[in-house]
């Protein structure tokens, strides 16, 4: 019995469930920022677990898998930060019932630089 293959595929399954939940969050959440919260967190962990599981199944691939995991874990938050910043600057509002928006005060006084 190849126990490591079973372990790897179970981890992959868990990861794929997180990916699905992330996509569900992107679909269901009321405004852009909340969608981004669901999207970024769930897809990052989902991708990490999915890839790790496959890396355990095919242990000769583990080097490449680790590099992809590192890259995703580093770039995913950066890209969603850049997108959230742009969206807020563009004036996309928070959903109704939001408590505070302290960034607005800063942006109205922001000196635009070249």
């Amino acid at each position: 019995m190849e126990w490591y293959r079973i372990l790897g595929s179970i981890i992959t399954l868990i990861g794929s469930i997180f990916l699905f939940l992330g996509a569900l969050g992107v679909f269901r959440m009321p405004d852009l920022y909340n969608r981004m919260q669901a999207g970024t967190k769930a897809t990052t962990l989902g991708t990490i677990l999915t890839l790790l599981g496959i890396g355990i199944c095919h242990y000769e691939w583990i080097g490449q898998i680790l590099v992809i995991i590192m890259f995703i874990a580093l770039t995913n938050p950066i890209s969603s930060h850049a997108l959230a910043r742009a969206a807020h600057f563009k004036g996309i509002p928070l959903t109704k019932g939001s408590v505070a928006d302290k960034l607005k005060e800063k942006e109205s006084t922001e000196v635009e630089v070249d």
Binding site: L74, T75, I78, H81, A82, R85, F89, E112, V113, D114
Partner: peptide
């Protein structure tokens, strides 16, 4: 005028 990129993106790009 162009809006400058955020500090995080700058640092990240230097790394990437």
């Amino acid at each position: 005028k162009n809006r400058a990129a955020s500090e995080i993106l700058k640092t990240g790009s230097k790394l990437l």
